[in-house]
């Protein structure tokens, strides 16, 4: 564990909680892509199946359980409790165009051709593009609430910090996971345009165009 990874994990946690609280407090999921949230629930589920097979640390186990729990809670709020406020018409990204190629890629390029490992690889690839329906939705409506941009910023920051974590681990531990690194770079790049807008507009009154 290094500082980049710890802050990265906490940033990820902050993003998830910000989104949950935003929906809960406003009793509305307007402007939130349910599809992205379903993809994240799939990401956590397929990645953390190792909860059943291996124990890494109490921290690791707790965070995984919290991430999974929050992901499903978010999906529940969007599609069940506050579904009347869900803006399905603007959430029109075709997720099969992500899930099918990503599934194929996971079968082709992985560290080990085993069930759990392919699911892990699938989750890594899928996470790198899971935010696309959300970014697509914002670009379509041309606007995002400030709180939604904070959510996206924390989510992007988490991945950017993981890049520093991998540089750190390469130098000090000789650790090197090509699949995670390439997917992490792709994921971070997807946020660059957003980061630029977030910083220059200073989180105020949004007319967001991507």
């Amino acid at each position: 564990m290094n500082i980049f990874r710890l802050i990265g994990d906490l940033s990820h946690l902050a993003a998830i909680i910000i989104l949950l609280l935003k929906i809960w407090k406003s009793r509305s999921c307007a402007g939130i892509s349910g599809k992205s949230q379903i993809l994240f629930a799939i990401v956590f589920t397929t990645r953390y199946l190792d909860l059943l097979t291996s124990f890494i640390s109490l921290y690791n186990t707790c965070m995984k359980v919290i991430y999974i729990g929050c992901a499903y809670a978010t999906v529940y709020l969007i599609y069940m409790k506050f579904r009347a406020t869900y803006d399905g018409n603007h959430d029109s990204f075709r997720v099969e165009f992500l899930v099918v190629p990503v599934g194929g890629l996971a079968v082709l390029i992985n560290h080990d051709f085993s069930f759990l490992e392919i699911l892990w690889t699938f989750s890594i690839y899928l996470e790198s593009v899971a935010i696309l329906p959300q970014l697509f939705m914002i670009s379509k409506t041309g606007e995002a609430e400030t709180i939604t941009t904070h959510y996206l910023f924390c989510l992007g920051l988490y991945r950017a910090l993981y890049l520093f974590n991998w540089i750190w681990r390469f130098y000090f531990e000789g650790f090197f996971d090509m699949i995670a690194i390439v997917a992490g770079v792709v994921q971070t790049v997807l946020y660059c345009d957003f980061f630029y807008l977030y910083v220059t507009k200073d989180g105020k009154g949004y007319r967001f165009s991507i």
């Binding site: 990874r5 994990d9 990820h12 990645r47 190792d50 291996s54 890494i56 640390s57 690791n60 965070m63 995984k64 991430y67 992985n110 560290h111 080990d112 051709f113 085993s114 759990l116 490992e117 892990w120 993981y162 974590n165 996971d177 995670a180």
Partner: peptide, 10 residues
Amino acid sequence: AEGEPLHDEL
């Protein structure tokens, strides 16, 4: 591939 790697990150 030399066995399943242990993934210690989140």
